[in-house]
Amino acid sequence: MLDFVQQLVSGVALGCVYGLIALGFVLVYKATEVVNFAQGDLMMLGGFFAFTFIGMLGLNYWLGFAGAVAAMALFGMLAERLVVRPILGYPQFSIIMATIGLGFFLRSVSGMIWGTDDFKIDTPFSQGVVRIGSLVLADDKLSVIAATIILCTLLYLFFNKTTLGTAMRASSENMLAAYYMGIPVKRVVSIVWAISAAVAGCAGVLLAPITFVHSNVGLVLGLKAFPAAVLGGFGSIPGAVVGGVLIGVIESMAGFYLAEGWKDVAPYVVLLAVLLLKPEGLFGLHIRKKV
């Protein structure tokens, strides 16, 4: 039982990271119908920014965290302006290739700047544990879960309660109509990219004490976050997080209870099963074309 809870918590923590990356996929997809395959690498970059601010420049953890997230937001806007906007309107395939290319670019450049070693960031959660009876939970994992809950609540409030959030939902639903309601759609899209890169940056910083920072971390995690987004229905914000947590828990349980090798396969087996039974994903809208 104790083992089970222990595995559950670390699965949820890992799943939250998947969920945060998946959230980035979903935000960009909803706003522009572009799948940004560099999302995992944006997370990696967030980790490196945090490492630079905290590990190299010696800033306070929270300052470094805020700095990394702000830098990522700017970087997201820049990536949208330079890589995506010039080819918007061209076939999906070109845009997807461009984001894959952006991912390669980010991995190589960060390897050139920071090297290919693993880096560690000292955080206030690095060493501590919480004991409940004989249950021992690491602070770094709990911090990921707490931060995910806070971020999701903030994003939910932002999208549903503010004018800018509403403008974003309107633009993602019908760009043409949004324009004629007086919504500057291009600016809105650029803010969406900023938010999604900032969320990825948060994930990168939170993950730093758990998996270390290295230039390929985003590729691996991005590949896990993608099924999380699909599982959640690709387009649903709560779906992305729930999908991420599911994948994380399945992975962690499979690693513990099943034979060697199942750990990496199990999430995809579940994904295939879900897609067979519910092709629109767990939270996806069932769209029926009116004829």
């Binding site: 503010t162 004018t163 800018l164 509403t166 403008a167 309107a170 949004a178 309601m181 007086g182 919504i183």
Partner: peptide, 11 residues
């Protein structure tokens, strides 16, 4: 959403 152009409140 049609009221968007009259929205005056700040974020």
């Amino acid at each position: 959403v049609g009221r968007h152009r009259h929205s005056t409140t700040q974020l």
